[in-house]
Every structure is written in structure tokens, then in C-alpha cells.
């Protein structure tokens, strides 16, 4: 069966968060449940001369990230009920007939992707808009991005268009779970595994 993949091009992302809010609109999510998050990673600082004038090497990069629909999803591995699963198209999603809301998946996922929905008493997460994909559409976040920083298609197509992708800071190493999302760097992106900056918006993304 054809496997799908997302792609993200940091060079086009302005951190506008339309992806997040379009997803919230389409899936009717509350403020507490978020399927797509935008990381603001910033660093650098200032040097003052004798007059107090400033030179700087400040930089900021935004990384938009939904579920990476990993090849070795940690969430699936720890799920005690089998609710969390990866289908043959590569989408990792929650079977709401089985989820008991234990939050093990949230703890295990290095990207903090699954969110607990207090109203449902269950976990929720991005399922790649699999219904839209089945109808020949792209996921809503991809369809919404005003800057065309997001892309979606078969894994083969995406690799052809975007290459193998790179590991971007501040994300954890792809070695743990083997994400399928292909990320491309902006000019001031920092390579994954480096710690030059800090996550500027922890409250928004955790």
C-alpha cells in the first residue's frame, strides 16, 4: 500500500500558525488539544561598544510540526491497549474504541504529539487527515499554509521533491522513532543535535 509523508520547508515558514488554527477549525479542537505546533527557536545576542551601541548576531527560526507519523512510533510501542497504531498508509492514529486515556503515548513521544482530551477522556492526535487524503485532498494544514511551507504526498513523491530532509534543531534526534516528515532548512536553521539557541515558546508547544 502507498505510504504518505508530510514535508516542511523552514525557508518559507514565517511562524504564522495558520497550520495550527486551520487544523483546529477543521477538526473542531479546543484550546487544550493541538495537533500541529510551531516551535520558535532563537539565539544570539548583543555586543555593546564603548558608546553603548549594539551589534548583534540574533537569529530566529520557526519549525512547524505535526505528528511525524514515525516508522518506529514510540507512542505505538508503549500503548497498553493497542489503540495507538500505524496503518498501512503510514498514518499513526488513535482507535477511540480502545483508548483508555492513560497518557503513556504522550510521555513516550519525543515530540509530545498526543494530547489528552479531558472531555473525551482519551488521547487525540493528528491522523494525517486520512479521510481527506482518502478523498483525494491534502491534509488541512497543508491546504491552509499561506506561504506554501507545507507539502504532502506519497513518500516517493515527497522524496523526489524535497530530498531526504534534514534534522532541524530544536527537535530530538530522528534516530529514536524515524519520523517520515521531510524537513528542509532555512538559511538560519540550526542543525539538529546542536544547542545554540533556546526554545522560545515552551508554553505554546508543550
Amino acid at each position: 500500500m502507498t505510504k504518505y509523508a508530510f514535508a516542511f520547508d523552514a525557508a518559507r515558514c514565517t511562524g504564522c500558525k495558520t497550520c495550527n488554527l486551520a487544523c483546529k477549525d477543521y477538526h473542531d479542537l479546543s484550546p487544550e488539544v493541538t495537533f500541529r505546533r510551531v516551535y520558535e527557536y532563537a539565539g544570539g545576542g548583543f555586543v555593546r561598544d564603548e558608546k553603548g551601541c549594539l551589534t548583534n548576531n540574533v537569529w530566529t527560526t520557526y519549525v512547524s510540526m505535526n505528528c511525524n507519523h514515525c516508522e518506529n512510533p514510540a507512542c505505538v510501542e508503549v500503548c497498553p491497549t493497542g489503540a495507538m497504531h500505524r496503518d498501512d498508509q503510514g498514518f499513526v492514529s488513535v482507535d477511540h474504541d480502545r483508548c483508555v486515556g492513560c497518557k503513556y503515548c504522550e510521555m513516550a513521544c519525543p515530540y509530545n504529539v498526543p494530547s489528552y482530551d479531558a472531555e473525551l477522556g482519551q488521547m487525540r492526535k493528528c491522523d494525517g487527515c486520512s479521510e481527506r487524503v482518502a478523498a483525494g485532498e491534502t491534509p488541512i494544514c497543508v491546504d491552509a499554509c499561506p506561504l506554501y511551507a507545507l507539502d504532502f504526498g506519497t513518500e516517493e513523491e515527497m522524496r523526489k521533491k524535497h530530498g531526504d530532509g534534514v534534522w532541524l534543531a530544536p527537535l530530538p534526534s530522528p534516530d529514536y522513532t524515524k519520523p517520515t516528515t521531510i524537513m528542509s532548512a532555512a538559511k538560519n536553521s540550526r542543525p539538529g543535535g546542536t544547542h545554540e539557541g533556546t526554545l522560545a515558546n515552551p508554553k505554546e508547544v508543550r
Partner: peptide, 26 residues
């Protein structure tokens, strides 16, 4: 829910679909 433009408004310009920002989508 709210949808973006379905096709490029200018067929000669790729990626010319008009897309609202997070506010319009909300």
C-alpha cells in the same frame, strides 16, 4: 469549517491559491 481556495487562481502561477491566515481560519 473553512476552506482555502481550491485551485490556483492564476493557472500560470504555481502556488497562487489564496489562503487566509490563522485569523480568517478561526
Amino acid at each position: 469549517w473553512i476552506q482555502s481556495e481550491k485551485k490556483e487562481w492564476d493557472p500560470e502561477v504555481p502556488e497562487s491559491k489564496f489562503r487566509a491566515c490563522l485569523r480568517g481560519r478561526s
